[in-house]
């Protein structure tokens, strides 16, 4: 008897996706299932379906090389097809440069910036570094003595560390950056007192900061943000703002009307209650920026990122 119920529920669970089949948007997440871009794509899928923006939304994962493999494939497959979207973000800007990707963001059509997260610099609670000024002094005196734990080389964390050093007048090439592969490895290294400071998105460190195991020295936001009780870089005397953002792109070769229609659909989704719930649940900020503003901001960022990656020595 129980088996019958189980079987029918199982069948139901499998059959559910059959319910709405009107093929609409296909969103590419240029990463493996589970990461930030995949979560963004799947959350968009949920919100778009819930709001009736689109009857059926598919998510396709094309992992690899900081999203550049997905980007190359997308630029080719989505050419002239207004049903195809791709999630991406700041990490891709750096990855295109460090991987010398032949296909760049010029090959696709930017639609909008969606979410963002600021970077924080943290130290273990027992650390002698109390303020950003202490860190700056130590960094200027002997850059090698400050070991920074963060994500992979050339990623947002590394770029922020390089920009920080450059802003305070230290040589970005001499930043002693220790790359850890994603997840909690960098956090573990900071907690275990293996490195001087940790640098990453606030979400990575939030629980430990709230528990008092880590202390935030500074936030890369332009002004104080509600969730972090710590000064900004600017307040600490370092004139630097960095935001790790995620956005959405469409394929090349679309007409102005098609781009406008896609932008309207995405905007409707982002303004919906379902999306607000997603933002709250995941702790993401809404950083909506569309059209020419987004394009202009993208251009500035590519320029700045190229400069700092050269300074760090990752791009020649």
């Amino acid at each position: 008897m129980k088996h019958v119920i189980a079987a029918s529920i199982l069948a139901g669970a499998i059959a559910l996706p059959f319910a709405a089949m009107a093929a609409d948007y296909t969103i590419m997440a240029p990463a493996a299932p589970g990461g930030g871009w995949d979560q963004t794509a799947r959350s968009l899928q949920e919100a778009m379906t819930a709001e009736g923006v689109s009857g059926n939304v598919q998510v396709v994962n094309v992992p690899g090389a900081g999203g550049t493999i997905g980007l190359a494939q997308f630029a080719q497959e989505a050419n002239g097809n207004p049903d195809r979207l791709m999630v991406g973000g700041y990490v891709m800007v750096g990855a295109i440069l460090t991987n010398k990707s032949p296909v760049t963001l010029d090959a696709v059509t930017p639609i909008a910036r969606l979410t963002g997260e600021f970077e924080v610099i943290v130290v273990p609670a027992a650390s002698e570094l109390q303020t950003l000024a202490d860190l700056t002094a130590k960094l200027k005196a002997d850059p090698g003595s400050v070991s920074w734990a963060g994500g992979s080389a050339g990623g947002t964390d590394h770029i922020t560390a390089g920009l920080f050093a450059k802003t305070v007048g230290a040589d970005p090439k001499l930043v002693n950056y220790i790359a850890f592969s994603g997840g909690g490895e960098a956090l573990a290294a900071v907690l275990g007192n293996q490195v001087t400071v940790g640098i990453s998105g606030y979400g990575e460190f939030q629980a430990q900061v709230e528990a008092g195991a880590l202390r935030v020295l500074g936030v890369s936001a332009p002004e104080r943000i509600a969730i972090v009780d710590a000064p900004t870089f600017r307040e600490g005397g370092v004139d630097l703002v960095v935001q790790n953002w995620r956005g959405i792109w469409a394929g090349p070769g679309l007409s102005a009307e098609q781009v406008a229609a896609i932008t309207a659909d995405v905007e409707k989704t982002v303004n919906s209650e379902s999306w607000k719930k997603v933002l709250a649940a995941k702790g993401w900020n809404n950083t909506w920026l569309a059209g020419d503003d987004f394009k202009a901001q993208l251009a500035t960022e590519i320029e700045n990122t190229t400069a700092i990656l050269k300074d760090i020595g990752l791009v020649s």
Partner: peptide, 21 residues
């Protein structure tokens, strides 16, 4: 279809989905 794995589809899969739609 059931477990949302990305497997490439071609004419056969599309025809089948059209029938089931």
């Amino acid at each position: 279809r059931g477990l949302s794995l990305t497997l490439p589809h071609g004419p056969l899969e599309d025809a089948l989905m059209n029938l089931l739609r």
